[in-house]
Design a protein around this nucleic acid. Structure first.
Length: 375
RNA sequence: GCGUCAUUGGUGAAGUGGUUAACACGCUAGUUUGUGGCACUAGUAUGCAAGAGUUCGAUUCUCUUAUGACGCC
């Protein structure tokens, strides 16, 4: 079975939705946050720890698994779920983001046929096409595959974005034509930067191709402003079907998740909780804190008051600071557990607020608490 | 006891008779949004063992003292 999305409720005062995604590996409620496990592992965490955080879908990455260990190795092991011992749903990103980060000369490296990369491992020349990306994902056997798109930088011009999204549409069609895994859903990606007509064009044309779900891409990169991110969502959502999942790629920050849900987004993913964890930072209801800061040396309280995560139930700020400053890997693990749980709990709270039609009040209250501590 | 050499920030250390004493680590703070994992950015010695002298000017030259290493009796 491919995935199935059920729309359970629409919030009265916003475009927020409550939904359910059914997959072969379980059912998840939306809005939802998906932890990122680029190389078939959420860095520093066992699958059990990821599940204990309340995770539904976990992300992995086509580009990285293509290079190492190779999609045939994963397929030989019995597919990605068996390979990484994760029995929940998995979504694979197409490698489109690596177009953004690895193709140095956009004009030259990105062609109609595909994208030329330099391997980040050994510098060798690589060529990835929409067909190749989908074939790899078919073999990886994730539950949801993503179309291969170009994720242009926020600084790209209108002309560039227009040409880019039109090419991404052609790539989406090519990818869909070769998609052959009956157990795997395929999502299309809407591009177009912060421009209303481009987002509309991209959304309308992508929906015509009839995907199992739709993403909004090209946001939250390269220093894009929050205003532009919200515009990208607002200009795309009206053209997406109500009975399909909507996925905002690469977001992120607690505030942006709330604002995204208000604008009609169902699922999110982001490296932020695990990346900042490895660098010693933690989300709290009062804002982000940096456990590297000296003031936490003798702070023997949990990271966040009343947090129900394993880390907060068992460890103190002072101990975690010690692990972080001595570069013990357990520090990153404990902070990753907390940060992932924080974002998942946030989406759980958002779902409760939607049930009671009080999402806007929930947002205002969250912002009030989150910014006080920032000073 | 005599002789030789050394003494630069929290640490390892470079260096020069003349504006801001290199670099690294550490430390302090900040950044991080479909991960090129463990990174990046910024700040961090009003002082070069102490004292005196030479000089327009000394961390850099001279002397004394202190401490240390090595050698000799």
């Amino acid at each position: 079975m491919k995935i199935k999305y059920d729309l359970l409720k629409k919030e009265k005062n916003t475009k927020a939705r409550l939904g359910k995604i059914k997959t072969n590996y379980g059912t998840c409620l939306t809005p939802m946050f998906m932890p990122v496990g680029t190389r078939a592992t959420v860095k520093g965490l066992t699958p059990e720890q990821v599940k204990d955080c309340g995770a539904g879908i976990v992300l992995s990455n086509t580009y990285h698994l293509w290079l190492r260990p190779g999609e045939d190795v994963v397929a030989a092991s019995g597919g990605l779920h068996k390979f990484m011992n994760y029995n929940g749903p998995i979504l694979t990103d197409s490698g489109g983001f690596q177009v953004f980060s690895l193709a140095k000369n956009k004009e030259k490296d990105i062609t109609e046929e595909g994208v030329h990369f330099k391997s980040h491992i050994d510098g060798s020349s690589l060529f990835l096409t929409p067909e190749k990306s989908i074939e790899i994902q078919n073999k990886l056997d994730s539950d949801i595959a993503m179309s291969f798109d170009e994720c242009p930088p926020a600084s790209a011009s209108y002309e560039y974005l227009k040409n880019s999204l039109e090419r991404t549409l052609r790539w989406a069609k090519r990818g869909k034509n070769v998609h052959s895994n009956e157990n795997q859903a395929l999502f299309g990606i809407v591009q177009g930067g912060p421009y209303e007509d481009l987002r509309k064009l991209s959304a309308v044309e992508t929906v015509k191709l009839d995907f199992d779900g739709y993403s909004i891409g090209g946001v939250a990169n390269d220093g894009e402003s929050k205003e532009d991110m919200y515009k990208a969502i607002d200009y795309s959502i009206p053209y997406l079907p109500e009975d399909k999942v909507r996925y905002l790629m690469g977001v992120g920050e607690p505030i942006d998740i709330i604002e995204g849900v208000i604008r009609g987004i169902d699922i999110f993913d982001c490296v932020l909780p695990t990346r900042i964890a490895r660098h010693g930072q933690a989300f709290t209801k009062k804002g982000k804190i940096n456990l590297n800061n000296k003031k936490f040396t003798t702070d023997f309280t949990p990271i966040d008051d009343n947090c129900d995560c394993y880390t907060c139930k068992n460890y103190t700020r002072g101990y975690i600071r010690h692990l972080i400053t001595t570069k013990e890997s357990l520090g990153g693990t404990l902070l990753s557990i907390h940060n992932i749980r924080f974002l998942i709990k946030l989406t759980e709270d958002i779902r409760e607020a939607i049930k009671e039609d009080r999402l806007l009040e929930f947002r205002d209250q969250f912002i009030k608490n989150y910014e006080i501590k920032k000073k």
